[in-house]
Nucleic acid binder design. Structure first.
Lengths: 214, 214
DNA sequence: GTCTATACTGAGATAGAC
DNA sequence: GTCTATCTCAGTATAGAC
């Protein structure tokens, strides 16, 4: 049986090999970009010869595209979780704090995705728009909806909810960018504390006057 | 005189040619990155042969470095203006609003610099840190100082001023990034209006309770 | 292994100042 | 016309996708 559980096998099934290639490619493309990564390095990182890469992906570009697609599909699942979080949230402070934490966590735990996203946007990849949509713009949507609801309830001041959503996203994600892309990592406190403080500024900033306090 | 004002001369002085090369290189490097730009394209864009490039810059890398250096030096002058603005500001709303406007303006008017900054950070250029320092971190510094002063006066709540500075920077610059890098340009209103609204959220978010209103 | 593209070069041509 | 800074032709070596 080809896909058996043998430890020391060099020969993997097509599926396994493909996965191994994708894994190495994510690392390399994220580190050096599409143009900065050579097929030779790629093959070396996987531990195979270049022709093997081309048995799984017709071109270097196809491999890159496959990676982005996979990330987008994976994130589509996150979306449901976030929607759930937004729909069931009662305490604004808690909601924005938790959301900020999740965003910061994303930057900490998936820096490769962040870098791939930026590279693909800068290099104008075909899937750039879909990539941006699933990774960033989706947040705008969820947040806008939440903010509208709370404005309707009179808890938040009347304002452009989309702009407010963008402002919050920026407050948080900029910190992730600074860390992952620019290497600026001098914020004091835990991720949770940072998230809470940012959420605090934001919620106070949009709350209706006279509706302050816990 | 070699640098005369003749119209139709192909032959430029060294200085003029150098400037022409830099100008074309900024455009190309910003568009396609360092690796994505070939010396052939570069030469074609300038309207000369490749060897001419090498008479002015020993390597392609030297040209790239020279560009970044020039941008950094140029921006050092902006810094003084911002410091001035921060020191003489009296009205918080006006100050943050104006600052936001200047940041958004920077993204609108110098998208090449933004893209170069990101490319250089992602591609780990030697001058990346200096570049980030002059273009972004400088803002943190100026804002932190301002916020500290206002907290001392009791106008703003006591909080980590550096984090607040970062949060404000993020609120604003994220919008510029979204536009320039991700191509998301669906915010309603003029730059000035957007700046005012963002500043409004921020200032309300950090203001001492009981100190609201104009 | 093959074939193309790319960073870089040496030797010479030429425009333009005097 | 002479001289020199400015520019071109025709490459080489290397590296990269396939």
């Amino acid at each position: 049986m080809p896909g058996s559980t043998d430890r020391k096998k060099n020969r993997l099934t097509a599926e396994e090999r493909r996965a191994a290639i994708v894994e190495a490619a994510v690392r390399l493309f994220a580190e050096k970009g599409f143009r900065g990564t050579t097929t030779r390095e790629l093959a070396a990182a996987v531990g195979v010869s270049e022709p093997v890469l081309y048995q799984h992906f017709a071109t270097k570009g196809d491999l890159y595209t496959a990676i982005i697609e996979a990330i987008c599909r994976h994130r589509d699942r996150d979306r449901d979780g976030l929607l759930e979080l937004a729909r069931h949230a009662e305490d604004d402070e808690a909601f924005f704090s938790r959301l900020a934490e999740l965003i910061l966590e994303w930057y900490d735990e998936q820096p490769e995705v962040v870098r791939l996203l930026l590279f693909s946007a800068l290099e104008e990849h075909d899937l750039k728009d879909r990539f941006v949509e699933t990774q960033v713009a989706m947040l705008y949507e969820i947040l806008t909806e939440y903010l509208e609801r709370r404005m309707d309830k009179g808890v938040f001041r009347r304002m452009d909810p989309y702009l407010a959503a963008r402002a919050f996203t920026g407050m948080v994600s900029h910190q992730g960018m600074a860390k992952v892309v620019f290497g600026i990592d001098d914020l004091r406190g835990s991720r949770q504390e940072i998230a809470r403080k940012i959420a605090d500024i934001f919620v106070n900033g949009i709350r209706s006057h006279g509706a302050q306090g816990a």
